[in-house]
């Protein structure tokens, strides 16, 4: 397969995943922002939305103040922000168009129709309700695209590169939200607890659509270190760092078998996965959650570069 084709598939999936994640962050922030301030509803929520989207630096180059309007504008429709939902969907479609024949008709229609519809949204005049509807719509794009690829694509290198892009991006996103909120997840904060933190935790869970999942898995009230466990090590949770890297390993193994050769990305992925496999959440807290997440983000990015170097250029 042409390296460019693999690259476009990989990035198409990454951008769709990122658009979905942005929609989720903003959705959660809007929810927090609508709470009375004693429940945590203040503008610091928009700060952490920017941080989770790793868009703080870019934002403050053109803005002075983070509030609902400015951050929403920037993260949703920001034409000059390469990581806005608008830019991500555009980039996803451009990548899809470049490899149109490598996609199935259903996948192409999912992304192309989304793009067409995006052109019709009136981004300047959006009230809360239409914003909420818009964000729901964004989340449905990834469902539609993923579903289409799952149901219609041949299981060959095209599919694996697509899934690889999604898993790398998803691991990055999950880790970022943990990075921004890690101080809330420290066990020693538990006695302090209280309604404010409770809302913060449930917000994190909501961002990753895991509030119900939490209860199913732990059958207990929301506790911060369990939230961390769910998002980092839990093997049932599709967004956990472990699950993402299990998928990355699976796809890289498939590629290695298919192409008949293993390379640096397989070795790196295997290292990261076995680290996660042998970790316990207590140890992660013991050794410093912040350090762990920072290290993970770095490993994940390095793996992304290794994949690019090995297959995509």
């Amino acid at each position: 397969m042409l390296a460019r084709t693999a690259d476009s598939l990989y990035w198409c999936a990454r951008y769709i995943e990122r658009a979905d994640f942005l929609a989720r962050i903003i959705d959660a922030s809007l929810r927090m922002g609508s709470l009375p301030s004693s429940y945590g509803g203040d503008e610091s929520e928009w700060e952490s939305a920017l941080a989770s989207a790793s868009a703080r630096v870019a934002f403050y180059q053109t803005h002075d103040h983070a509030d609902e309007r400015t951050v929403c504008d920037f993260l949703v429709f920001g034409r000059n922000n390469p990581s806005s939902i608008w830019s991500c969907l555009n980039a996803a479609r451009a990548n899809a168009r470049a490899v149109r024949t490598a996609l199935t008709l259903e996948m192409w229609e999912a992304i192309n129709e989304a793009w067409n519809e995006l052109q019709r949204y009136d981004c300047d005049n959006m009230d809360r309700e239409s914003m909420a509807r818009f964000l729901e719509w964004v989340k449905r794009i990834s469902l539609l695209f993923d579903g289409a690829s799952y149901r219609t694509m041949l299981r060959n290198d095209s599919y694996w590169f697509l899934r690889l892009g999604m898993a790398i991006e998803r691991a990055d996103n999950t880790a970022r939200i943990l990075d921004v909120k890690y101080h809330l997840l420290l066990p020693e904060r538990e006695p302090v607890g209280g309604t404010l933190d409770y809302f913060q935790w449930t917000t994190i869970l909501r961002v990753v659509s895991a509030l119900t999942a939490f209860h199913w898995v732990y059958r207990t009230s929301v506790k911060p270190w369990l939230v961390a466990d769910l998002l980092i090590l839990n093997r049932q949770m599709p967004r956990s760092l472990f699950s993402c890297h299990a998928e990355i390993m699976e796809r890289l193994d498939q590629l290695a078998d298919f192409y008949g050769r293993r390379g640096p990305s397989q070795r790196m992925a295997s290292n990261t996965l076995s680290k996660l496999e042998s970790s316990r959440i207590e140890d992660l807290f013991q050794n410093g959650m912040h350090e762990f997440i920072t290290g993970f983000l770095r490993d994940n990015a390095t793996l992304g570069s290794a994949i690019a170097e090995q297959y995509l250029v």
């Binding site: 397969m1 042409l2 390296a3 460019r4 693999a6 024949t101 290198d157 192409y259 995509l312 250029v313």
Partner: peptide, 28 residues
Amino acid sequence: LADKLGVELVEGSDLFVEDDIVFMRTTV
């Protein structure tokens, strides 16, 4: 035509020349 022929549809950046030989950049 690329589909009908079963050959890769490449753009300039997919090809490169080394030692006067043309190569295409692939995943392998």
